[in-house]
């Protein structure tokens, strides 16, 4: 259940960042979680609501973008969508596939509201 420790770490980082900016609360958080990142977005959402209790992120809306995995064939060089690490090149059947996208796990941005904003 690494989603819980990850949710706690996201909340801690963003709460500190929002305080540094003098914000009253965080209203939105944009995350990018690639389909191959090893994170279940639904599980993260579930943990997030618990992790955010009592912080500036408590009411934040979580928007999660999930880019598809992309592999590049080490033999013939074509790029194609992959959903697993054990992808096979659809052209030449090679297993020498390098994952070029889909492993992202990034806090893209947050929206903060000023203290007197309510």
């Amino acid at each position: 259940m690494h989603e819980m420790s990850i949710a706690l770490s996201i909340v801690e980082t963003l709460d500190a960042k929002a305080r540094e900016e003098g914000a009253g609360r965080i209203s939105g958080i944009d995350l990018v979680i690639g389909k191959l990142a090893g994170i279940e977005p639904e599980s993260l959402r579930f943990c997030f609501s618990a992790a955010a209790k009592g912080t500036l992120a408590e009411e934040a809306l979580l928007a999660i973008e999930e880019p598809e995995g992309l592999g590049e064939c080490g033999e013939c060089g074509i790029t194609f969508p992959v959903s697993f690490y054990y992808a096979e090149c659809p052209e030449c059947r090679s297993l020498r596939v390098k994952i070029v996208s889909g492993e992202e796990f990034v806090i893209q941005s947050i929206t903060i509201e000023d203290q007197e904003g309510e």
Binding site: I6, S9, I10, T13, K17, E21, A23, S27, L31, F105, V106, I107, Q108, S109, I110, T111, I112, E113, D114, E116, G117
Partner: peptide, 15 residues
């Protein structure tokens, strides 16, 4: 009163 902070920060950045 609402601002967007672009962070582009790896979630596992600290680790």
């Amino acid at each position: 009163r609402s601002r967007t902070l672009v962070l582009e920060q790896d979630v596992l950045h600290k680790n």
